[in-house]
């Protein structure tokens, strides 16, 4: 679709004054949550910052955070794709690449917590959430299909996401207490 990156304005400017340490800390938290490979965190954050600064020199960044999260997410996808490719080709079992047993258990707990929370959701909210996240429908198109107003669709998604997150936190707390 011919839409340019939304976070970029065409005006020239110097790299804006930015609290890069805060940005780095925020991105690091995101990357840590997304991957079991702790050795990746530093790399991905540094690479993201480098690209942000570079982009900022060329164009004024309208949203450092929106662009930063997008770059970091793309880099993670690249890394994981490369890992998969690498391991199937060489068939060498990298001990460091395999998730730690703790991590596997945590992953299972998280999945169970999420499915339970989805089951507990009001059916309409669950439907809206599935359409948005799994099927990638836009809010406007969900609103039209379900004859809801846009605000109501957004509300279902935000409440739903907040509920799911609460469920994950509870599950993790319970898991830690048990040990």
């Amino acid at each position: 679709m011919p839409v340019s990156l939304p976070q970029i304005d065409d005006r020239e400017s110097d790299v804006p004054d930015q609290d890069w340490e805060t940005v780095a800390a925020t991105l690091a938290r995101y990357v840590r949550a997304r991957t079991s490979r702790h050795d990746l965190v530093e790399d991905v954050v540094q690479e993201t910052l480098a690209r942000l600064v570079q982009q900022g020199r060329q164009q004024k960044l309208v949203s450092v955070y929106a662009l930063g999260f997008r770059i970091a997410a793309n880099l993670l996808v690249d890394h994981h794709r490369r890992d998969r490719h690498y391991s199937t080709e060489t068939e060498i079992d990298h001990a460091s690449d395999a998730p730690l047993p703790d991590r596997v258990i945590a992953g299972r707990q998280e999945l169970a917590a999420l499915t339970a929370a989805l089951d507990a959701m009001p059916p309409l909210r669950r439907d809206v959430f599935i359409r948005r996240r799994l099927q990638g429908q836009s809010c406007a198109s969900i609103a039209r299909d379900l004859a809801l107003n846009l605000k109501a669709v957004e509300k279902h998604i935000t409440r739903g996401l907040a509920d799911l997150h609460r469920a994950v936190i509870l599950a993790n707390d319970a898991g830690n207490d048990g040990r």
Binding site: T22, T26, R29, Y30, A33, R34, F69, A73, G107, E110, L111, L114, T115, L118, D119, R126, F129, I130, R133, L134, L161, A162, L164, H165, V168
Partner: peptide
Amino acid sequence: HRDKFTDLQALWHSDALIEALRQTV
């Protein structure tokens, strides 16, 4: 604000959420 957004964004992007949604469907 930053921490909450980051956690929710990570959850939104996570494989676990996609898998849970698939199982639910």
